[in-house]
C-alpha cells in the first residue's frame, strides 16, 4: 500500500510539472503588471528586480522547459537524482510562493504562466507545501512513472484521482482557465482590448502595406506622406492624397489596433477641399 502511494506521487508530480511547463509556454504572463509599489509603498529594489526577472518571458520559458524536462525524467527514470531535483524544486517553489504572498501581495506567482497572474492566495502556498511533501514521499518510490502506468493498480488510480481533485481545489488557476476557454478563439495570453492597446505607428504601416485594401488602392495614391493619421478606439486612420480620373481624391484607411488578426478597411472619398467648395 505504501509503495503504491509512493508510486502515485511520481505520477502526480510528473503530471503537475508537465502541466506547469505547458501553461508557461502557452499562456504568457501579462506584461502590464510591472508596478513596483504595494499600496503606494515602493518595493525594495532587490525584490523589484527579482520580480521583474521572474516576470520576464525568457525566464518563464526557461523555467517551463526545466519543469518539462523534470516531468519527463520522472516518467522515464527512477534515478534518485531526479527525485532529489524534484524535491528541491518544489521546496524552492514553496519558499518563493510564501515570500511573494508576504512581500508582493499585488503580484501573481506565475506557477502556471499567465493563469497565475492573480495575487498569491493561502491555498497556493498550501498547494506548494503538499507538492513538496509528495516529492519527499516519492523519493523512495521504486518505479518510474511510465512503469507505474504500465501496471496500474486500482488503488493507485483511486489515490491519483483524489490527489488530482485536491490539486484542482487548491488551484486558483482553474477558474482563470475556464474563463479563458469560454472566450471565443483567444489563443495565448489574455489580450489587451484593442481600444486601449498601445499600437505603434510602425505596426499600423506594416499591417496596412501588407493588406488587400492597400494593394487595391495603391495605384491611385499620389504621395507616400499621409495627410492625417489619428486614432479612435480600435481603429487608426491613415489618409493619403489620391487622384482618380483626373480628380483629386483621398484614400482613407482604417487599420485595426488589435494584437493579432488586424483588419484593414479603405474608402475613396472626395478631397476635403473639393467638398468644402461644393458645400
Amino acid at each position: 500500500m505504501v509503495t503504491a502511494f509512493q508510486n502515485t506521487q511520481v505520477l502526480l508530480l510528473a503530471s503537475v510539472l508537465l502541466a506547469a511547463c505547458l501553461a508557461k509556454l502557452a499562456v504568457r504572463e501579462p506584461v502590464a503588471n510591472t508596478s513596483h509599489r504595494v499600496h503606494g509603498v515602493p518595493v525594495p529594489a532587490g525584490l523589484a528586480r527579482l520580480t521583474a526577472l521572474r516576470g520576464s518571458r525568457r525566464m518563464a520559458v526557461g523555467l517551463g522547459l526545466g519543469e518539462g524536462v523534470l516531468g519527463l525524467a520522472l516518467l522515464m527514470t527512477s534515478h534518485l537524482s531526479v527525485r532529489l531535483a524534484t524535491t528541491v524544486a518544489f521546496a524552492a517553489a514553496t519558499w518563493l510562493v510564501g515570500e511573494l504572498r508576504v512581500h508582493r501581495p499585488d503580484a501573481g506567482c506565475g506557477c502556471f504562466g499567465g493563469l497565475s497572474a492573480r495575487r498569491v492566495e493561502r491555498r497556493s502556498v498550501l498547494r506548494a507545501m503538499l507538492f513538496t511533501a509528495a516529492a519527499v514521499a516519492a523519493l523512495g518510490a521504486p518505479l518510474a512513472g511510465l512503469d507505474v502506468l504500465r501496471d496500474v493498480q486500482a488503488q493507485v488510480w483511486l489515490v491519483f484521482a483524489v490527489e488530482l481533485a485536491l490539486f484542482a481545489a487548491l488551484s486558483p488557476e482553474l477558474p482563470a482557465l475556464l474563463e479563458r476557454s469560454s472566450l471565443p478563439r483567444c489563443p495565448g495570453r489574455a489580450s489587451t482590448p484593442c481600444e486601449r492597446r498601445r499600437s505603434p505607428i510602425e505596426e499600423t504601416y506594416a499591417t496596412l502595406r501588407g493588406s488587400a485594401a492597400w494593394a487595391e488602392h495603391e495605384n491611385v495614391i499620389v504621395s507616400a506622406v499621409p495627410l492625417d493619421v489619428w486614432r479612435e478606439g480600435c481603429w487608426r486612420f491613415v489618409v493619403f492624397p489620391a487622384r482618380r480620373d483626373g480628380r483629386d481624391m483621398e484614400v482613407v484607411f482604417a487599420v485595426s489596433t488589435a494584437e493579432r488578426d488586424r483588419t484593414v478597411r479603405a474608402a475613396l472619398t472626395a478631397d476635403t477641399k473639393d467638398l468644402s467648395a461644393v458645400l
Binding site: 472566450l183 471565443p184 489587451t192 482590448p193
Partner: peptide, 22 residues
C-alpha cells in the same frame, strides 16, 4: 461615451477576444 454608439464600426475578425468583455 467616448466612441459613437455604432457596433458596426468595430473590427469583427480577431478582436472578438478583446471585445467580448467590452
Amino acid at each position: 461615451r467616448p466612441l459613437p454608439e455604432n457596433s458596426g464600426d468595430r473590427p469583427v475578425v480577431g478582436e472578438q477576444c478583446a471585445l467580448s468583455g467590452a
